[in-house]
Simulated assay, not measured.
Amino acid sequence: MPNQKPLKLIYFCHGVPGSEHDSVFLQDALPAGVELVAANLLAAQGDPKEACVRQFDEMTAGYEEAKVHLVGFSIGTMAAAHIAQARPERVAKLTLVSSAAPLTLGDFLPKTAGAPVFKIARSSPRLLTVLIVLQGLLFRMRPTVLLKGLFAKCGAQEKELIERPEVASVLQAGLANSLVRHHESYAAYLKAYVSDWSAILPDIRCPTELWHGAADTWTPSEMAWAIKEALPTDAQLHIVDRAEHYSTLQAFGNTLGEALRSSADYSSSEK
């Protein structure tokens, strides 16, 4: 339990595949005095849509008085949305980065790089398990090969980012978390994601913003527009020119850090 209330509490929901280490894209940009709590979503047991809320309660239990800035990245959008809907009294703001929208909101799969996996998750849970096991074996033997294969069709900005050793290690940690340590939870998240969870979006009332890369091939920008239309509030949508999936997360982290440093009354805002 923390000794004093932080200037601000940011709660981060990583992508899937991924891990809590994805939060480095935010942590490295934050000024001193800002607390970042990053959950390992896959470590929570049970239905992901309920487990993420229980995990949020447990990990923020020491900050009862703090208002939370909730950040969801990629499929972490689903977790963040469920938390915002279930705990409106705790969430001051919701930010969705490279957001993965419910597939029932549009015909997104033709433009989505992970479409084959999502189709398998929809139609054949057994085949999904086999696929994850095979990917896990490949990762154990040739982690770099699997990582490069996942980003084979990304653009120049994303390739430059993932070729940095410190970023590659974060991405490999996410693959190890998903394909090796928590492969059953990984499968459960994929199956939960491809189900229809759009009904919770109209219940999210907190201020919301979306950040999306104009060149994102993992989650096409149509997903961000669909979420914006489904929310009852006038959510702000920031389209980042030339950015893709992780490069948008980095751009958001840098902008957030700059905004916090320039806000003289930050410690008293959103309380």
Rank of each mutant, 00 (worst) to 15 (best):
K49H: 07
G33S: 15
A156M: 07
T104G: 15
R142M: 08
A156K: 09
C154P: 00
P125N: 10
V145D: 04
E64K: 15
A173M: 02
S98H: 00
E50S: 09
A38E: 01
K119P: 06
A115N: 14
V167T: 05
L109K: 11
K148I: 01
A113C: 08
C154W: 00
P143L: 13
A168F: 00
L103A: 09
A38R: 05
K93G: 02
G76N: 01
G155N: 12
V37M: 09
V68E: 11
L150K: 12
T95L: 09
S98P: 02
G174I: 00
Y63K: 09
G62R: 15
F73M: 02
P102Q: 08
S124P: 04
H69F: 04
G106K: 08
V68F: 08
Q45T: 11
T144C: 02
P125F: 14
F56T: 13
L41D: 01
V167E: 00
V167M: 01
A61V: 07
I162R: 01
G155I: 06
R164W: 01
R164N: 04
L41P: 01
K119V: 12
P125C: 14
G136I: 10
G174E: 00
A115E: 11
Q172A: 01
E89V: 15
C154E: 09
G155F: 04
E65Q: 09
E50T: 13
A100D: 05
A86P: 10
P165S: 10
G46L: 11
G72M: 03
H69I: 05
A152M: 10
R87A: 13
G46N: 11
S74L: 05
I83C: 01
V133E: 09
L128C: 03
N40W: 00
M78A: 02
R87C: 14
I83T: 02
G136D: 12
G46E: 10
P125V: 14
P48V: 06
L109A: 07
A43T: 04
A113L: 13
Q135F: 00
V97M: 05
V91K: 04
P48T: 07
A84P: 04
K111Y: 05
G155H: 08
A100I: 06
A61R: 06
C154G: 05
A81V: 06
E64V: 08
V117L: 15
E35G: 11
V117K: 03
Q157N: 13
G72R: 02
A39G: 09
P110E: 12
L94Y: 03
Q45D: 13
L131V: 13
V53G: 10
R126P: 01
L138E: 08
L36S: 07
R54Y: 04
Q172I: 00
D57K: 13
K148Q: 07
V97Y: 01
A79F: 09
G174C: 02
L137R: 07
V91T: 07
F56C: 15
P143Q: 15
L134S: 15
F118Y: 15
K67I: 10
S98Y: 00
D107V: 13
R142K: 06
